[in-house]
Amino acid sequence: MPEKTFIEAIHDAMDEEMARDPSVVLLGEDVGLRGGVFRASTGLIEKYGERRVIDTPLAESSIAGVAIGMALNGLRPIAEMQFADFSFPAFNQIQSEAARFHYRSNGGWSVPLVVRMPYGGGPGVHGALYHSQSVEAFYAHIPGLKVVLPGTPYDAKGMLKAAIRDDDPVIFLEHKRAYRSVRGEVPDGDYTVPLGPAEVRREGRHVTIFAYGYMLHESLRAAEELAKSGVECTVVDVRSLKPLDVKTIAEAARLTGRVLVVHEDNRSFGAGAEIAAIVAEEALMYLDAPVRRLTGPDVPGIGFNHVFEVEFTPDAAKIARAARELAEF
């Protein structure tokens, strides 16, 4: 199987879906001639024309709102928010409109829409307060949306294809650090990965770590390191927050009785709180230690200076420390 970067996987998924289905269109700022500021859509405008690859006005609410209209009338739009941080002008269209159309019309209308957003930051990203945020908790709170955060190139391609074919609005979050630093095997040609099931990436009997997106890789590195000193971790890739795979989460928590949830998003009311609540509801009697969260702090984004980037962001060393403490509890 060929090795690809995360962003190549994203590109291939869009390219193949646009070739397969003429109703798939891509719209966003700079997605056409520039191929996207991260170059996820390189070459697509040349291949599919400017009717299907649309350089939009600089107005995010319109990117989401027009895409909703397209979806209502037979297209399958992929709307790109240049940065997740700038999805908030479109928040109203996503939360009040896209997420509710099917429910509020009692099934009469549906919105097959994918909103792709590069998110996150960390050492070396230099995204500062407005190009580094994690936004998943906002969107995962909304009934009617599906919210996914693939960690591997294989999943990036398979889940993006599944998202494009899904008849509901899907928020598709791509971690910026993963784009070029994460490589992995990606089959040529067609396959999909369902939106929902979590995936156990590593099995170990001492501590269960739940993570997603780029934090999956930091967690796997931490597990590797801990294994050298005899601490064996289970690492669960919670690649979909909505729907959330309660069954796999509960089983993985019961397996070790020691749970660490890792995310880069701000701590309070984040995905970690939801996962901890599920563990409390479904696995309390199996726990040997309090559930622990390792997350970004409750400050508005990752400061520009490298010192701030390092201080803010969970990494393999911090994860290993937290997991070891749990193992020794």
Binding site: V66, G69, E97, R104, G108
Partner: peptide, 29 residues
């Protein structure tokens, strides 16, 4: 808050004005 798919009456929000963008997208399609 009218909606009637067969008549192509598109479901409405209570949030005012949002439908203007949906109209643009529908027309584009």
């Amino acid at each position: 808050h009218y909606s009637h798919p067969r008549l192509r009456i598109v479901s409405q929000s209570s949030t005012v004005a949002v439908q203007a963008l949906h109209a643009a997208g529908i027309a584009y399609a």
